[in-house]
Amino acid sequence: MFDLKGYGWMLWEGLATTLEVGVCALLLAIVMGLLGAWGKLARNPAARLAANTYTTVIRGIPELLLLLIVFYGTPTLLQALAARLGHDIRVDFNAFTAGVLTLGFIYGAFATEVFRGAFLAVPKGQVEAAYACGMSRGLAFRRIMLPQIWRFALPGLGNVWMVLIKATALVSVIQLDDLMRKSFIAMGVTKLPFDFFFVAAMMYLGITAVSMVGQQQIERWANRGVRRA
């Protein structure tokens, strides 16, 4: 279809990095989402305030800007703090870590809303019944809430994943060798920008298509015991 002048392997390498960043960021986002949802539903006003501030700020600022803040801002901030304490240190941020941290942090805010909805979707009577049976809060969470929360959260998490994997394209801006940056390098050598970006676009489209099918399968598996109306 396209003559990639022997640079096709570079795109596959880039695709691998993209998927690595995406999966790591998703795991972080799930952890952040559970924490955020717990904070939003907590009785403690400080936890509620922290969780609400988190989602408000993250959803109001573009991902690219947040990525730049984390990648360039954090080392400078740490160095400035260290200088004030009388140390001269040099902090360098690994692009992979910065990318995963930022994306995980951003999509954690979206996962927070997903998990909050899922928490609220578990019938209250079930938790009360669990307490009445003598389960502690932790045990009730593990045995009663969690198995249902993740089932309710699956469709939402699928959406988060789809948006997240597309947002990984931004890590090319901080010089991480993902699919976008590899295409960019290959374009510089071969002078065939359209071909390379089109192939890259098709690879992203492939991820989306596979994810859609995978999501359906997982949801069917997760809902295997649920009676349908």
Binding site: K166, T168, A169, M180, F194, F198, A200
Partner: peptide
């Protein structure tokens, strides 16, 4: 719709801005 919702905006921008150079 599938193409524009399924690919990152950055790819789309590059495809039009740099890609048009090929033509």
């Amino acid at each position: 719709i599938f193409f524009f919702r399924g690919t990152p905006l950055l790819v789309q921008i590059f495809l039009i801005y740099y890609g048009s150079g090929q033509f």
